[in-house]
């Protein structure tokens, strides 16, 4: 239970899709002019993440990762299909997005029209694929946690786009210098919002042991993250090489 709560708050506030890892920026910047549209898109992203992350977790667990095929029989134990992650994850996501599109068009034509091209573009929204890939690389342990991770990172993205849409509605009457109008000021706002979201950076990282100095902790965290990424890249490369050599 505790790990569920921790993961939930961590993925909404600390590892926020927009402000911590800067994913899903294209639709975040483009569809945030009005609150109503932003809410629609945010809800769609939550839904797609909530469905695709657990689905991809199942795929990862029983098809893709090293030794996942062992349930077919002992002779499949040393197969590693993780080089197929990208294409399989994308296939799941595209299917789900198609489904969402059909449902939204049927039940809310006005939302469908205002979302326009960005609804099908969720399929290539990096926040969605990012959700599945983070799920894989962070070694999420159970289906329930994967669902939790999908929903909460979706909520994090939703909050971000909701806040920026409200801000953009508010500054519509501001006297922004002409060269900065539109996307320019939106980028600046995003950066400033990132400062606000820094409030949570560094929370929930340590245990009950002696607290290290604050600065060291953040750098340590960063190096850890870097290492993780490097490890990920290494393992990817290894698996690609294996695939080529095979």
């Amino acid at each position: 239970m505790l790990e569920h709560i921790e993961l939930f708050f961590k993925s909404i506030f600390i590892d926020n899709m927009v402000f911590a890892v800067f994913l899903g920026m294209c639709s975040y910047l483009a569809v945030s002019k009005k609150v109503a549209t932003a809410v629609g898109l945010g809800a769609a992203v939550i839904f797609v993440l909530a469905v695709t992350v657990p689905l991809n977790w199942l795929l990862d667990q029983y098809l893709l990762r090293d030794g996942a095929l062992v349930w077919l029989g002992p002779e499949y134990a040393d197969y590693n299909l993780s080089f197929l992650s990208f294409i399989l994850f994308i296939a799941t996501i595209a299917t789900m997005v198609q489904l969402v599109e059909i449902v939204v068009e049927k039940f809310s034509p006005s939302l469908y029209n205002s979302l326009g091209i960005f609804l099908p573009l969720i399929a290539v929204n990096c926040a969605i694929l990012g959700g599945s890939l983070f799920m894989q690389s962070r070694d999420i342990q159970s289906l329930g946690l994967a669902f939790n991770y999908g929903v909460s990172s979706g909520i994090g993205w939703f909050l971000a786009i909701l806040a920026i849409a409200a801000i953009r509605e508010k500054i519509r009457y501001s006297n922004v210098p002409a060269p900065l109008r539109g996307l320019g000021i939106t980028f600046i706002i995003t950066g400033l919002m990132g400062i606000g979201f820094q409030s949570f950076g560094g929370m929930l990282t340590g245990g009950d042991d002696a607290a290290p100095a604050p600065v060291e902790e953040t750098t340590a965290e960063k190096t850890k993250e870097k290492k993780e990424i490097n490890k990920e890249i290494d393992s990817k490369e290894v698996s690609y090489n294996d695939a080529i050599n095979d």
Binding site: M203, L204, G206, T218
Partner: peptide, 9 residues
Amino acid sequence: IRVFNPAYP
């Protein structure tokens, strides 16, 4: 933040 966030006093 004061209590929970070790990064910021």
